[in-house]
């Protein structure tokens, strides 16, 4: 077995998940300069809704592909409406307030969503119904499963779709214009409120997809799963350059691989002095290094196509 290859693969899969969540942070930051700390909770909502719907449909004997698609559709519907509602209720009234106010509101929204989920689903872990028949493939001495391949494929397709949306469509152009200068975009006839709501909707839809994939991969969903995930994804967005879409992708993948290699080798490298539970040291050490030498992140220049 090739340990290094396996660790890199592990990292890439983890990284694809981080990247999908990081996109949500980066899109909102790009357009509003707001760190939407509630985004991790939107991912959690997506996972919880998907698992619940899937469990019901699987019990009713609905065919697996149809059940999966319905679960995804339900998760997207709930996440998008929550995301847009949060923007309307919690962020829009504070759009011209000092920058600290929306940040604190975002933390508040995150706590509210987490507690709502605890009330709705209880404190237990939900388990992902065993509808996916896990196949294990051997590739050059490492193992991958069909679920892992699915994760990478779905992540690649959705992120590709996002880039096309931002760069090639009318809505994308409106997003880029709003990101560059909100007032001027408004004067040019862009409906800024609608564009911002659309940004939240797209980010939340990505979060729903990520939530379903995460629940399928780890087999569990829980009301406070969004917190650490959100923190990691936010770090990934900062690493890649917050506000920059390819940056979120790069940051997510890098963070995943660094974490995986860190956990795999830190014990041997330090002669057992630091164990594998210090994996985050690696990730955050590299984050600090990047921020010292490139304060705006790896790709984080104020490029015109940030959205």
């Amino acid at each position: 077995m090739d340990v290094l290859l396996q660790q890199v693969l592990n990292g890439l899969i983890l990284g694809s998940l981080y990247a999908m969540v990081a996109l949500g942070y980066t899109m909102v930051y790009g357009i509003l300069e707001l760190i939407n700390f509630a985004h991790g909770e939107i991912v959690m909502l997506g996972a919880m809704v998907a698992v619940t719907v899937l469990a019901v449909l699987a019990a009713l004997g609905v065919p697996v592909p149809l059940a999966l698609l319905s679960a995804l559709a339900a998760a997207v519907a709930v996440c998008v409406s929550t995301g847009v509602l949060v923007e309307r209720v919690a962020y829009r009234p504070l759009r011209n307030a000092p920058r600290l106010a929306p940040l604190i509101t975002a933390i508040g929204v995150s706590i509210v969503l987490q507690n709502l989920a605890m009330i709705v689903w209880g404190r237990q872990y939900l388990s992902f119904p065993p509808v996916l028949d896990i196949q294990i493939y051997e590739v050059a001495g490492a193992t991958v499963t069909n679920v892992q391949i699915l994760i990478v494929a779905v992540a690649a397709v959705t992120m590709g779709g996002l880039l096309v949306l931002v760069r090639r469509t009318r809505l994308g152009r409106a997003m880029r214009a709003t990101a560059q200068n909100r007032e001027v975009a408004g004067l040019m006839g862009v409906d800024v409120n609608r564009v911002i709501a659309a940004t939240f909707a797209v980010g939340s839809a990505l979060a729903a997809v990520a939530g379903l994939l995460i629940a399928a991969y780890y087999g569990i969903a829980h009301y406070n799963m969004g917190f650490i995930l959100g923190l990691k994804a936010f770090s990934a967005a900062v690493l890649g350059g917050i506000g920059n879409i390819p940056g979120a992708l790069l940051g997510g993948l890098l963070l995943g691989v660094i974490e995986s290699l860190g956990a795999g080798y830190i014990g041997d490298l330090t002669g057992g002095f630091l164990g594998s539970h210090y994996q985050d040291i690696f990730a955050f050490f590299i984050l600090i290094l990047v921020l010292v030498f490139r304060p705006s992140g790896l790709l984080g220049e104020r490029v015109p196509d940030r959205a």
């Binding site: 660790q7 290699l261 014990g267």
Partner: peptide, 21 residues
Amino acid sequence: GREYTTDKSTDFTAIMTSIKA
């Protein structure tokens, strides 16, 4: 082999890969 994790982790692929080796 002795590996470590935390009581909040969900991803153990890295430590399990080391252990498998």
